[in-house]
C-alpha cells in the first residue's frame, strides 16, 4: 500500500537501525589493521575524541530537547558512531585501492577529518529522525533546533571542513537513501552559499594559497 509520509520516515529510521545492527560502535578488526599500519597509531586519539564529543553531543542535545531526553541523545550518538566507523572503513578501502597505499597516518591523525566525518554521520542520523518530525508537521518540535548546522556549532567545526567529507561519505555509503543524499546536497549548498564565507573560515586561507600559487601561472583570458 502507498506509504504515508510518517510511515516513510519511520521506515528510514528502521532501515538506518537495520543497517547498523551488525556494526559495532567500536573500530572493526579491519579498521584496527589500518590503525596499526599507521606510522603513528591513532587508536587512542580516536577513542578519546569519540568519548569527548559524545559528552558534548549528549549535553547539547539535552539542553535543546529537554533534560529527560539525555538518554535519547546518547542512543542517537551511538548510531552516529556506528555509521562513522562503517564509513571510515569504506573510505579507507577505496583510498587504499585508489592510491595503492596502506599507511594513512596523516589522514587518521587529522582531528579535523575525524570530527567532520563523525559530524556528517550524526547529521545523517539526526536528519533521519528529524524527517519523522517534519513529516508529521512537527515544525514546533524541540528537535527543530537540531537541524543543520546545529552539529557544526556544538563541535566548533568549520563548515568548509564538513563540506570536504560529504562527497566521499556519499560514495562510501551506498545504502544512503535518496532523500538523505538530497539532504546532504542541501547542506553542501548552504555551506557554499553562506556558511563557508564566515570570517574565520579556512576557505579564505585556501583561496589565498591558490592565489599565491596561481601568480606564476597566466590567468585565463576573459571569455569574449
Amino acid at each position: 500500500p502507498p506509504q504515508t509520509p510518517i510511515r516513510a520516515a519511520m521506515n528510514s529510521i528502521q532501515q538506518l537501525r537495520g543497517e547498523l545492527t551488525s556494526v559495532s560502535d567500536k573500530p572493526s578488526s579491519s579498521l584496527i589493521v589500518y590503525f596499526k599500519n599507521c606510522t603513528v597509531d591513532p587508536s587512542d586519539e580516536i577513542t578519546s575524541r569519540v568519548e569527548q564529543l559524545g559528552q558534548v553531543f549528549s549535553q547539547k542535545f539535552a539542553q535543546a530537547v529537554g533534560q529527560r531526553c539525555e538518554g535519547l541523545g546518547k542512543k542517537r550518538f551511538t548510531l552516529g558512531v556506528q555509521l562513522y566507523y562503517k564509513v571510515m572503513e569504506s573510505i579507507l578501502k577505496s583510498e587504499e585501492k585508489r592510491l595503492s597505499v596502506q599507511n594513512f597516518s596523516k589522514l587518521l591523525n587529522n582531528a579535523t577529518f575525524h570530527t567532520s566525518l563523525l559530524a556528517c554521520a550524526l547529521e545523517v542520523v539526526m536528519a533521519t529522525y528529524f524527517g519523522s518530525c517534519v513529516k508529521n508537521g512537527g515544525d514546533e518540535s524541540p528537535e527543530t533546533d537540531l537541524r543543520f548546522p546545529w552539529i557544526l556549532d556544538i563541535f566548533h567545526l568549520h563548515a568548509f571542513d564538513f563540506y570536504k567529507v560529504i562527497e566521499s561519505f556519499i560514495k562510501a555509503e551506498p545504502t544512503l537513501k535518496h532523500d538523505m543524499i538530497e539532504h546532504l546536497g542541501r547542506c553542501e549548498q548552504k555551506i557554499m552559499e553562506s556558511l563557508a564565507w564566515k570570517t574565520d573560515s579556512p576557505l579564505f586561507e585556501l583561496l589565498r594559497q591558490s592565489r599565491e600559487e596561481g601568480l606564476g601561472e597566466q590567468a585565463e583570458p576573459p571569455a569574449t
Binding site: R98, F104, F113, H178
Partner: peptide, 21 residues
C-alpha cells in the same frame, strides 16, 4: 546517486582534500 553532483576528479579523494596525500 542521480541528484547529487559529484565534483571530485578521478585523481582526487579525501586524502587530497585534507592535505594528507
Amino acid at each position: 546517486s542521480r541528484d547529487y553532483h559529484f565534483g571530485l576528479e578521478e585523481h582526487e579523494g579525501i586524502s587530497e582534500l585534507f592535505d594528507c596525500d
